Computed example of a mutant assay.
Amino acid sequence: MNVLVCIKQVPDMESKFRVDAAGTWYDTTELAWRMNEYDEYAVEQAVRLKEQVKDADITVLSIGSDKVKETMKKALAMGCDRGAHIADDNVSGKEPCEIAGVIAEYAKEKNFDVIFTGMQSQDRGSGQVGVLVAEMLTLPAVTTIVDFVYSDGRIEVKRELEGGIKAKVAFTSPAVVTCQLGLNTPRYPTLPNIMKAKKKELLSIPIKDLLKVDARQHTDKVYFPEKKGGGLIIEGEPAELADKLIQILKEKTGVLA
């Protein structure tokens, strides 16, 4: 069984964010970095599948500068077999369709049986990459999974829908699944496995070799939400409250005269 798991390196969400000089992303100079939380569940599920299917082989893929290799080493220490680093110093400037296109181009001739991704990234949060990869590879996609069972090429999952409703879906591989929080409990890499990860294959591929999709959209500007004034609480009997409210509307809008 051939498995691909896609991960992203994101800032620690406790970091203090600032908009960068170009005004199109956040400043990355003083941020702490970690694996995207949703992707940790994807890695864990891929490793559990490998433990179940003894001939399974897992490739972990990530796009970014050389610093993403540190996050990839965590995935290798968790149990992935090799890493595919798509080298790109400007990954933040690429839209979901471009990222998905790169992953699809890498995967198209490798015959992956299952491709795991996180449901979304914690920084961009588009939730598009996994389903776009599936579309580009003409594979079925099942999103927001919170339970995963594999047996002889057949996969049964539970999807989390709005309102906490769970929907059971069955399908056959190959397929793409996107992982929701709570799917499993991601393991902590042990020291022996961390040492073993240092010897595992981690190849870098220039993104220009895989970038075949042109962006159809771009980011003009990012900014923090404007701070607005607090609400006004008025008290009293219903008739009194109505009079006060009418007076406030007169003062604020000048519409009711």
Rank of each mutant, 00 (worst) to 15 (best):
G182K: 10
C179A: 12
N193E: 06
T172G: 13
F148G: 01
K198E: 05
D220Y: 07
E160N: 04
D220V: 14
I165W: 07
A215F: 07
P192F: 00
Q217G: 05
L191G: 01
A197E: 02
D209V: 00
V169F: 14
K221Q: 15
L210F: 02
K199G: 08
L211P: 01
L183A: 13
P206Q: 04
P189G: 09
K199D: 10
I205W: 01
A141L: 02
L203K: 06
K208H: 09
T144W: 01
V129K: 09
D220C: 07
N184V: 05
V213S: 13
N184F: 02
D209Q: 12
T190V: 01
T143E: 10
K196G: 01
P206K: 02
D214T: 12
T219S: 12
L210Y: 08
A175G: 11
I165L: 11
L202R: 00
E160P: 00
V133F: 02
L183Q: 09
P186M: 04
L181M: 14
L191W: 08
N193A: 02
K208T: 09
V131H: 11
H218V: 08
A175L: 11
K196T: 03
V177E: 05
V213I: 15
T219V: 15
D214A: 15
K166H: 15
I194A: 07
N184Y: 05
G164Q: 10
G164D: 05
L191V: 12
I207S: 13
A134G: 15
K199F: 00
T185Q: 13
R187V: 07
D147R: 08
Q217H: 14
F148N: 01
L139D: 10
P189M: 04
I207K: 03
G153H: 04
L161I: 03
V149S: 11
K212Y: 05
T190F: 01
P174A: 00
I205Y: 10
K196M: 04
G153I: 02
P140F: 00
V131C: 11
G153S: 04
V133Y: 03
D214H: 12
I194S: 03
A175Q: 10
K212Q: 14
S173Q: 15
L202M: 09
H218L: 04
R216I: 11
F171L: 15
F148T: 01
Y150Q: 09
E135W: 10
D209M: 00
L139F: 06
D152Q: 06
L181K: 13
K208G: 07
N184W: 02
I165Q: 09
I205L: 06
S204W: 00
T178F: 08
T172H: 14
G130E: 08
S204H: 01
R159W: 00
R216A: 04
